[in-house]
Simulated assay, not measured.
Amino acid sequence: MPRPKSDFETLRALDFRDPDEVLDDDTMYTIYEVARMLQGLDPDRELDAETETVLLDWAIPWMMVNADAFVFAEPDADDEPGHYGLA
């Protein structure tokens, strides 16, 4: 439900890091791993489905805005995610 700004003690500007500040140049990641790393989490950390969904809500637009910085590798199987890395 929407809330008035006055309900919040502190408001911060959205500040996204550049892809090269988040990802290692020689490594490919799934979108799930990228989402974790954007939040400063270990890419292998186990998360509940609800938390993972929230993190993806941040990661997908970030990757789209920075699409020129990424390369993509096809998944090994139809039921696996693709992998992304720095261009």
Rank of each mutant, 00 (worst) to 15 (best):
R12H: 07
D15I: 09
W62A: 03
E9R: 10
D7E: 15
M63N: 06
L56R: 04
L41T: 02
D57A: 15
V54D: 14
A73E: 15
E50T: 08
D24H: 08
I60A: 10
W58R: 13
N66L: 02
L86R: 04
V22S: 05
P61L: 07
V54Q: 14
R12G: 00
P75G: 07
D68A: 12
E52R: 12
R17W: 05
H83N: 08
G82N: 02
V71H: 10
P81H: 12
D7I: 03
A49N: 07
D68N: 11
D68R: 13
D42F: 01
F70V: 01
H83L: 15
F70H: 04
L38S: 04
Y29F: 09
L56H: 02
A59Y: 03
D26Y: 06
A59S: 11
P75K: 10
A69F: 06
P2H: 03
E74P: 02
V71M: 09
Y84S: 00
A77D: 15
M1H: 05
D25K: 14
R12L: 11
P4E: 10
E46H: 09
L41Y: 10
D7F: 10
A87E: 07
D76W: 02
R45P: 01
T10V: 15
M63H: 04
L23A: 04
Y32H: 13
D7K: 07
P2M: 02
D48C: 06
E33H: 00
D44V: 03
D25E: 15
A49F: 10
K5R: 12
A13V: 11
T27V: 15
M64H: 06
E50H: 07
L38M: 14
V71F: 08
G40W: 00
F8Y: 15
L55R: 11
N66W: 05
T30G: 14
P19G: 01
W58D: 14
L55E: 08
R12C: 05
V22N: 04
E33C: 01
Q39A: 15
M64Q: 13
D44T: 12
L56N: 00
T51V: 14
D15E: 14
I31E: 13
E46G: 03
L56I: 05
D18C: 00
V54E: 15
Y32S: 14
D25T: 12
F72Y: 15
R12M: 07
A35F: 04
P19T: 02
G85T: 00
A67M: 08
E9G: 02
M64A: 12
M1Y: 03
A77F: 07
D20A: 12
D20Y: 09
D68S: 12
P4H: 08
W62P: 08
D79L: 05
L38H: 03
V22E: 05
D15Q: 13
D26F: 06
D48Q: 06
E74K: 13
K5W: 06
D20W: 10
F16R: 11
R36M: 09
M64W: 01
P75S: 09
G40V: 03
Q39F: 13
A67H: 12
P61I: 07
I60N: 07
E33G: 04
A77G: 06
V65T: 13
R36P: 04
V22Y: 04
M64K: 12
D7S: 14
A59Q: 06
R45S: 03
Y32K: 11
A87N: 09
I31N: 08
W62S: 03
R36S: 05
L38D: 05
P4S: 11
